[in-house]
Write a protein that binds this DNA or RNA. Structure first.
Lengths: 229, 229
DNA sequence: TCAACTTTGTGAATTAATGCACTAAGCCCT
DNA sequence: AGGGCTTAGTGCATTAATTCACAAAGTTGA
């Protein structure tokens, strides 16, 4: 294998590419053909040099004096992020949130079809929600194999989250989106992103309190979150 | 005002304090009295030196050779994050997600009671969801004043999100949690945290693709997210 | 054809975050 | 009372991320 190892893009830049992509999709929808780093920076609320540097990690796709082509850049960002294909998702935990996500069309529309939902509660297994029937968490391995699942979403209660993660990993999943407010213990070969609303509110609380204490001289919260592994 | 400006804690540390807090609450619930930086580091999945540095921003509350007291540290973290009081929340957008959040008890249990929910759709206004009646977005200013709202949560569609933000800001809100996949334009005096599931999935997609391309030698996704302002 | 203008791409400086490694401090046991 | 052990606190080196500022490259118009 003399194949070139993929150029390493900084994590911080990777986290911004989806935001650029979303903005460019909006531009494309309004028939904008080109954009400059200044324009995208204004729309994304970041520094223009940062935009140029981020885009430069994809390759040299701009034209000096002109800017970047919307559709071409969309293509390049999608290629880099691995969005030229679909990634199948299974939801573990068929509670309020899990069911809401299973029927949420934002997943499918962005290329992440939810192909299964499971639970460990016999009362929930067998129920149908938006064309999916809740399966048994014990069948996860079969579901992952048969449905070619790539990503697991955990929407269980906190106490059940770790065993849900264990089951997903046992089934061969290497990417997890975790909504339970716990720190999952996983091998380093597995990617975990945490979404914890309580954490977000508590961060806001800090900056809000600071504004109150220091008058309004205080800084605001940074707009990127961090989800610890 | 010769009052000392509050010690500046790095943003990265602020984003970790809620995670420590959650772990310490679990320890307290199992009657653990003390912990060392090593133990908390293992539970939080971070470096022990980082834990010590983060906690040192709160003050010098550990005892060398012994560790930290669970309940005392909980108190200190809550004080620093502004969690000694409740912060009232209003939800803008009474769709699936908005209603789910309004009845989500994780908000209340962490000190963020949802005191109101509004929409601009006459068909939704007047409906009742878990002890709350959906109000008119036009009444936001009154609701914010009467209910002493501190934080606004945006769960509208993407096109409506900016005007929801404008309405919240007009009503005097300075902290916003945004679920719509758009970059809000807000004055720098307002704190915005974005939660975008599509972005999270796309970040996972990148690292998943990298694992496929480079064998499993590839790195995993960082576990902290970033939500740009 | 060339000068003026625009905008990318990037080296280099700066700032922020991380993690090592050591010192300081307190406990415990003999 | 004192030596050995443990662990907090932190200065410093390293790494990562951001931002500046400018050269390179292309466009446009005269």
């Amino acid at each position: 294998m003399t194949q070139l190892q993929r150029r390493k893009i900084p994590d911080a830049a990777i986290a911004r590419l989806p935001i650029y992509l979303q903005i460019l999709n909006n531009l494309a929808a309004t028939n904008v053909l080109r954009f400059s780093s200044d324009e995208l920076a204004a729309l994304a609320g970041v520094n223009a040099a940062k935009v140029r540097k981020d885009l430069s990690y994809l390759g040299s796709y701009g034209t000096r004096g002109v800017g970047y082509e919307v559709t071409y850049l969309i293509h390049q960002i999608k290629r880099e992020l691995g969005l030229m294909r679909e990634w199948n998702v299974v939801v573990v935990g068929a509670g309020n949130l899990g069911c809401a996500l299973a029927k949420f069309d934002g997943f499918l529309s962005r290329g992440f079809p939810v192909v299964g939902i499971v639970d460990n509660d016999p009362k929930k297994i067998g129920r149908t929600t938006s064309s999916l029937t809740v399966g048994d968490v014990g069948d996860l391995k079969n579901i992952v194999r048969d449905e070619k699942v790539n990503i697991g979403v955990i929407t269980t209660s906190s106490p059940a989250a770790q065993s849900a993660a264990d089951a997903l990993i046992e089934a061969g999943i290497t990417s997890i989106l975790n909504f339970a407010p716990v720190v999952l213990s996983t091998p380093s070969s597995v990617s975990v992103r945490n979404v914890d609303l309580g954490v977000e509110l508590q961060i806001l609380s800090y900056y809000e309190q600071m504004r109150i204490e220091n008058g309004s001289k205080a800084q605001s919260a940074p707009q990127l979150n961090s989800v610890g592994a």
